[in-house]
Simulated scan of single mutants.
Amino acid sequence: MEIAESTLVTRRGKFRSVAFRDGAEHLALAHGRLRRDDVLVRVHSECLTGDVFGAVRCECGEQLDAALDAIVCEGSGVLVYLRGHEGRGIGLVAKVRTHVLQDEGLDTVDSATSLGLPVDVRDYSPAARVLRHLGVRSVRLMSNNPDKIAALESNGIRVSARVPLLAPASPDNIRYLTAKRDRLGHVLPQVDTFDVAEH
């Protein structure tokens, strides 16, 4: 794993910036003095449309902002930003093609499989390796995805707690959130309380 480190000052404060090449090039942002155990961590999959351009079809950008805010509020923690995870690993062009099918009524799972694409091919092992590089042994993981917990633990990072990271349900994202809950097993209680009739 090739690594380069520097200080990154952002609107939220100062981070230790750890760029690393492990297959793709990724970035970890560490804030404050890290403990070895029970570190507040977000492992975030790249989503150009949500993270950069504020797309409301998904909750990715909101989760990224909320995770960084939580880390700064706590005074320490790590955000691992995994590139090459666009569209759960299918890439940007394919993801945009699935959006067309979603606009025609397919959900996020069927829109991928109807194009002959896998549902999820993300690899979380680079996140585990960079966390070990930072001296982290166990994490409180900000995630709604049980598969992410299993992936980190299978790569030697103990998840001592799952910290929900819930974006509000809206008319723009409710179908996406519902599919993630019902078909991908994400823990999204806000879907249950969303009243479609009111919107």
Rank of each mutant, 00 (worst) to 15 (best):
A128G: 15
S114R: 15
A128D: 00
L115D: 10
P118D: 08
G105T: 11
V96H: 10
R122H: 13
R129P: 01
C58E: 01
L106A: 07
I90T: 13
E74G: 01
V80I: 13
V119S: 14
G84M: 10
L68N: 02
Q63P: 07
A55S: 15
K95P: 12
C60N: 03
C60K: 03
G87W: 00
V96R: 10
L79N: 00
R97D: 13
A67V: 06
D65N: 12
Q102E: 15
G105M: 10
C58A: 05
C73R: 14
V109E: 10
L117W: 09
L131I: 10
T108S: 15
G77P: 02
S114A: 15
V78N: 01
V78W: 00
R57C: 01
E62K: 04
A127D: 01
S125G: 07
G87S: 11
G91M: 07
S76I: 00
Y124W: 14
G54M: 03
L131P: 02
R122Q: 12
V109T: 07
R122I: 12
G87I: 01
R132A: 13
G77M: 02
Y124E: 01
G54H: 02
E74W: 00
H133D: 03
R97P: 04
I71K: 02
G87T: 04
S125Y: 07
G116E: 14
